[in-house]
């Protein structure tokens, strides 16, 4: 049985998908995942999830973000001095990078 493995490198961080592991059950999957995905990279925690338990929707089935122009909902539309908050600045930078990506797709 195939388990997908998600690694968190430090407390509070997101668990990020890092690969898979084959195991007969969850307990063995946790044992194997420690070796395969937690040994070389800094690891605080691992999740193992049976592959068939993961729901998926992809671009064949969904139009992510809609199909019409909704640029008004992008944070970069508004001219705000966000220098008072680091996380808002970071979020704006992310958004701007996403916009550039969308632009090149068209």
């Amino acid at each position: 049985m195939r388990y997908e493995v998600f690694r968190q490198d430090k407390p509070g961080a997101y668990h990020t998908h890092c690969g898979d592991v084959h195991a007969p059950d969850r307990e063995m999957a946790l044992l194997f995942a420690q070796i395969q995905h937690g040994r070389r990279m800094q690891t605080n925690s691992l999740w193992v999830v049976p592959k068939e338990e993961i729901g998926e929707v992809d671009t064949d089935e969904a139009a992510f973000g809609g199909t019409t122009d909704k640029a008004y909902r992008w944070a970069t539309t508004y001219n705000v001095d966000a220098s008072f908050a680091e996380e808002i600045e970071a979020s704006e930078r992310e958004q701007a990078a996403e916009e550039r990506k969308r632009g090149s797709d068209d």
Partner: peptide
């Protein structure tokens, strides 16, 4: 028997 058990024992 499997890649996973191979790696675990090697570890």
């Amino acid at each position: 028997p499997t890649l996973e058990s191979d790696l675990a024992l090697a570890n």
